[in-house]
Design a protein around this nucleic acid. Structure first.
Length: 199
DNA sequence: TATGAGATCAACT
DNA sequence: GTTGATCTCATAC
């Protein structure tokens, strides 16, 4: 096993379109629970679907600060969703973490989710936050300090690309990235003809 | 397998 | 007052 490499601010201080695919296969840890990142989406400040598109507000303020911090927001009044702020200071772009393959702290995650099925523990942005216990209390925290720790992926992986999910603006941009073939995706990526998985 | 409603709130018009 | 980077459960086919 290669020694884990903790990702620091410089990793995030690049284009979301570079950082997002590089996060696939990385490990996200939060208070002893976590797993392999298998699905993310990039949101650039010039993108109408981004929360920062219409300028700074109380909710998105952290996106306008330096990279390497957590942007947590309330989704549909119910769920929390976790983003990593990227790009140089002030460019207001972020990567939404959409799904993990659980590897650590399974018992705690099952307890918080009230669910036993491993595949559903973290396969969705709201599910992952509930499993890890991420809430608005963690808004604005640095990603390279506890309770967060993010480790570089140990080697190359096959990254699938496709349109983002659940948005109504800029729906055609292929800014969703995932670990090809992973059963822990919130939704499968479109596969080449004839290779689609059943179930 | 697929579609639909409800939950519930901050931001925006 | 409406919308939305969601999820779960119920009902239909």
């Amino acid at each position: 096993m290669p020694r884990p490499v903790l990702l620091h601010q410089d990793f995030f201080a690049r284009s979301v379109h570079v950082v997002a695919p590089e996060l696939i296969g990385a490990t996200l840890m939060f208070k002893g629970a976590g797993g392999t990142i298998v699905e993310v989406e990039a949101y650039h400040h010039t993108d109408p679907a981004a929360h920062s598109f219409n300028g700074r507000t109380g909710r998105n303020a952290v996106m306008f600060g330096p990279p390497g911090y957590a942007y947590v927001y309330r989704s549909y009044g119910i769920h929390w969703c976790l983003n990593f702020v990227c790009e140089p200071d002030g460019s207001a772009s972020a990567v939404l973490i959409r799904a993990l393959e659980p590897t650590h702290g399974l018992a705690a995650m099952r307890r918080r989710r009230g669910l036993t099925e491993e595949r559903l523990l973290c396969s969705g942005p709201g599910r992952l936050c509930e499993a890890l216990g991420v809430t608005d209390k963690h808004y604005g925290l640095a990603l390279d300090q506890p309770p967060f720790a993010i480790f570089a992926r140990p080697g190359d992986v096959e990254v699938a690309v496709g349109p983002r999910i659940g948005i109504t603006k800029a729906v055609d941009h292929p800014w969703r990235y995932g670990l090809a073939g992973s059963p822990f995706l919130s939704k499968p990526f479109k596969s080449p003809a004839g290779t689609a998985r059943r179930r």
